[in-house]
Design a binder for these strands. Sequence first.
DNA 1: CATGAATGAGATTTCATTCAT
DNA 2: CATGAATGAAATCTCATTCAT
Lengths: 195, 195, 195, 195
Amino acid sequence: MNRNRPKYKQIIDAAVVVIAQNGYHQAQVSKIAKQAGVADGTIYLYFKNKEDILISLFYEKMGYFVEQIEDEIKETMSAAEKLLVMIRKHFQILASDANLAIVTQLELRQSNLELRERINDVLRDYLKIVDTIILEGKESGEFLSNLDVRLTRQMIFGTIDETATTWIMNNQKYSLPELAESVHQLLLGGCGSKI
Amino acid sequence: MNRNRPKYKQIIDAAVVVIAQNGYHQAQVSKIAKQAGVADGTIYLYFKNKEDILISLFYEKMGYFVEQIEDEIKETMSAAEKLLVMIRKHFQILASDANLAIVTQLELRQSNLELRERINDVLRDYLKIVDTIILEGKESGEFLSNLDVRLTRQMIFGTIDETATTWIMNNQKYSLPELAESVHQLLLGGCGSKI
Amino acid sequence: MNRNRPKYKQIIDAAVVVIAQNGYHQAQVSKIAKQAGVADGTIYLYFKNKEDILISLFYEKMGYFVEQIEDEIKETMSAAEKLLVMIRKHFQILASDANLAIVTQLELRQSNLELRERINDVLRDYLKIVDTIILEGKESGEFLSNLDVRLTRQMIFGTIDETATTWIMNNQKYSLPELAESVHQLLLGGCGSKI
Amino acid sequence: MNRNRPKYKQIIDAAVVVIAQNGYHQAQVSKIAKQAGVADGTIYLYFKNKEDILISLFYEKMGYFVEQIEDEIKETMSAAEKLLVMIRKHFQILASDANLAIVTQLELRQSNLELRERINDVLRDYLKIVDTIILEGKESGEFLSNLDVRLTRQMIFGTIDETATTWIMNNQKYSLPELAESVHQLLLGGCGSKI
DNA sequence: CATGAATGAGATTTCATTCAT
DNA sequence: CATGAATGAAATCTCATTCAT
C-alpha cells in the first residue's frame, strides 16, 4: 500500500477519469483498472477496497487544494484579501480540471453516508483555513466582531460550493473564476441590508 | 397511479421512514411495502418504479415546503422579513420531522444524477421564491441594487442548505430553528466588511 | 362456465386479437379482459384459468376447421380430390383470418408442453380426417396400397403446417390458397422419382 | 466470451441436460450453472445473457448436424441417395442424444418469437442442403423438372420435423432411424398417385 | 509484484388469481 | 353476475473481491 509508487497515483487519476466520464455508479473497479492499465487484482495491492480508492482520491486532490490555497494566502495581508484569494484559487483549480470538478462536486456526493463522513474528515483542513480567515477578520476589525464562526464558515463554504455545483450542472458553460470577485463581495457584504 | 387514494401517501410516508432508518441504499422496495403495510406488488399500482417513489416523495414534501413558505411570507412586508420567515419556516419544517430532514438533506442526494436532475426540477419552485424575495429587496431599496440575482440565490440557498446538512451530520443535537435569526443576519450583512 | 353465453365467445375472440397483436408472452389476462370489455375477474367466471382460455380458443377454432373441412369433402368423390379440398380449405381459413393464422401457427406454439399436449388432443379430430382420406385412397387403389398411414399422415400434416408457418413468417406476403394445388401435387407424387 | 475455453461447451451441455429434464420454462440460469459446476456469475463471462445461451446451444448443435450431414452426403452419388442419407443421419443424431432431441424438437420452440427468428437463421444452413439436393435431383432428371424448390423443401423439412416431433411426443418409444427409409420413399413418391 | 478468471449474494418487477363489495 | 384492487412468489444479472498461478 505504498503511496509513493507510480501506480498509486496512476490508479487515482484513472478513477477521476472513469468517474467523470461514466458517473459514480458506472465506475466499476474493472473500468478503473483498465483505464489505469493494470489488472483488476493490482488495484488491491494499493488500495484496501473500492471505497479506499475514492477516499484516497479525495484526500490527494483536496490536499492539493489546501496546499495551493495556503501557499497563496500566506502572502496576502488582510482577511478580506485572503478570502478573495481563496475563492479565486478554489474556482481556478476546478476550472482547470473539468474531470476533477465533476468528480468532487457531483459524482462523489452519490457515495454512501459512511464514505461521505470520511470525506468530511478530509474537508476539515479546508474548513480550518476558512475558520482562520474568519477569526483573523474578527480580530483585525475587518469583520463584525460578533460573527458566529461556525455559521459564517457554513455561509462561506455553502456559497462557494453551491456556486461551483450550479456551474457544473450548467455544463461549465460560463467562466467560474470570473465569478470569484462577485462572490467575494457577496460574502463580505451580504445582501447589503442596513440592519 | 391515482395519487388521491390513501395508499399513495401511505407508501410515500413509509419510504421516508425506511430511508431515514436504513439509508438510501438499504431501502428496498420490500422494506417500504412492509412498512406501508401493503404487498410488494401494490407499490407498482401507485408508482411506475422505485425511482418514481423517490421523485414523488420529494415532489410531495417539497411541495409542502413551498406551500407553507408562500403562505407565511405573503403576510409579511419587507423583503428582509420575508427572508427571515422563509429561513425560519425551512428550519422549522426540517426540525419538526427528523426523518424527512435526513431523507431530503442526506439520503436522497445519493441517488444517481438522473434522479437528482428530476429533483432539481422540483426544487425550482423553491428557488423561485428566493428570486422573488431578492428582486423585491432590490426594487424596494432594502438590498443593494447591483446584486446579481443568480449568485445571491446561490448564496442564500447554499448557506441554508449547508447549515441544515451540518445540523443533520451532527445528529440534530442543537436547535436548528434557533439559528434562523443569525443566518438571516449573516445573509443580509455578510461578514460585515465595509467594502 | 356456460359456453353459450355471449361473453364466452367475446373473451376468446379478444384473446385471438390480443395474442396476434402482442405475442403470446405479452398477452396478459388484463389485456384480454380490456379487449373483451369485461373486468379481469369476469374472465374467471367463464374460464378456469388462463390456460383454459387458450385451450378453449384452440378447441373452438379448430372445431370450426374440422366442421368446414368435413362439410366440403363429403361432397367430393375421390381421395385425391378430398385431399385437395382439405388443403385448400385449410389454407383459405388461415388466409381469411390473419389474426387466427398468427395465433395458431406461431404464438400458441410458445406455450408450455402441458398446454401443447392438450392442444394435440384437439388436433386429433383433424388428423382423423387425414387418416380417413389416406385409408380411402389405399382401398380405392388411388394411393399405394403399402402406405404407412401414420407416416403418410405426418407427411401430409407436416407439409401443410410447414407451408402455412413459412407463409406467416414471411408476413403473409403471397397468396397461401394459391399454393394448395401445388402442395397437393407434391403430396400425391412426392419428388416424382421412379423408385 | 471465448468459445474455445472448456467452460463454454460445459455450460451449453449443462443447458441441454437441464432444459431436457426440467422444461424450457423451468431451466433457470442457476440450475444450468449448478449442472455445469460453475457459479451463476461465471455463465455471464461466456454468454451475454440467458437468451445467448440458448442461441449458442442451437448454433453449436445444429452446426454439428450440418457438418455431419454434409460429410456423409458428399460421398454419395444420386440426389435420392443423398436425401436418404440426410434423413437417416438426422434421425440418427436425434436418436443418439435423447436430451438434445427433446430440447431442439420441443423445448426450444417455446422460446419467444425473437429467439425463434435467431434460431431460424441457424436453420438456414440446413435448409440450404435440402435445396441443393432438390436442385441436383431436378437437373439429373431424378426428380420432376417442374418441382417448386421452396414447396418441396417445405415438404421435406416439414415431414422430417413432424416425424421427429411425433416420435418425441410418444416418448421415443420406437426407433426413429428405422423410419428413415419409409420416410424417404414417401418423399420420393408421395402417396403414389398417378396424377 | 502482477494477473484475471471465478465467485455468489442480493433486489426489482411482473402478472395470474382472489374475494370483498 | 360483475368488478378491479390487492396479493406475493420468483428469477436474471452485476460487480467487488479473492487467490492460484
